[in-house]
């Protein structure tokens, strides 16, 4: 088994120490950083994601794999140029104003980080302006919003409107999720997509950013 496959396999097994060690060794052997990132770490996470979707593994397995990926990333980071090289892109997430139910949003954050995204989590009860400001400040490509209450769902529409006013629509994709949400509602308020769970959010963001 070559070292990239070894890294991928150790990552799938959720072994942070081994992944860090193998990543360092691969660097010493002259494997390019980009190749290590994509063919070792991210390809391992890809397998983990697929196995999770197929019910073969559970959420803790995904998170342990993500932890292993971070360990590998820590080794690579000093050698990378710019944030975009280190991650697949930035996503700003938050639970909308008036809503304190953030468990689903937290899961989405965990899953996005696991897939290699830089996640800026604004927490809960987030005013519309903050989503826009943070997206602009960080150069995020995606804004993700969650709501559990039918009474707080309309805040999502306000964020979309604000993004439109600031000329961000199209440049920044907006995804929404939460128990009372639906495809229809997302379309109605002009969001780019409705995501029904954490892994679906990862797939959706990857789709928007053209990542396999």
């Amino acid at each position: 088994m070559d070292i990239l496959e070894n890294i991928s396999q150790s990552l799938q097994n959720g072994e942070p120490d081994t992944v860090a060690e193998l990543t360092g060794k691969a660097l010493d052997d002259g494997v390019p950083v980009k190749e290590l990132l994509h063919k070792g770490l991210l390809s391992g996470m890809e397998v983990v994601g697929e196995r999770f979707k197929a019910h073969e593994i559970f959420l803790p397995d995904v998170l342990l794999a993500a932890k292993a990926m971070y360990a590998g990333m820590e080794v690579l980071k000093p050698l990378m140029v710019g944030e975009e090289a280190a991650t697949s892109g930035t996503v700003v997430i938050g639970t909308v104003q008036g809503d304190l139910h953030d468990i689903g949003k937290n899961l989405v954050g965990i899953m996005l980080r696991g897939a290699g995204f830089n996640v800026v989590d604004l927490g809960k009860d987030v005013p519309p302006e903050r989503f826009i400001e943070e997206a602009q400040r960080t150069g995020a490509r995606v804004i993700g919003m969650s709501a559990l209450l039918t009474t707080t769902m309309p805040v999502m529409g306000l964020v979309v409107n604000l993004a439109r006013e600031r000329g961000l629509l199209g440049k920044v994709k907006i995804i929404v999720g939460g128990a009372p949400l639906s495809d229809e509602y997302a379309q109605q308020i002009g969001a780019d997509a409705y995501c029904f769970d954490g892994m679906n959010a990862v797939d959706c963001v990857k789709g928007f950013l053209g990542i396999n």
Partner: peptide, 28 residues
């Protein structure tokens, strides 16, 4: 989710049925 306590007891405490039992949310 990845606490040692969870990893140690997950499989003994929680029964996960096979795919014939629907546990997905409606959209999935």
């Amino acid at each position: 989710l990845i606490a040692d306590h969870t990893l140690r007891h997950l499989k003994d405490e929680v029964f996960f049925p096979g795919p014939s039992i629907d546990r997905a949310n409606r959209s999935r």
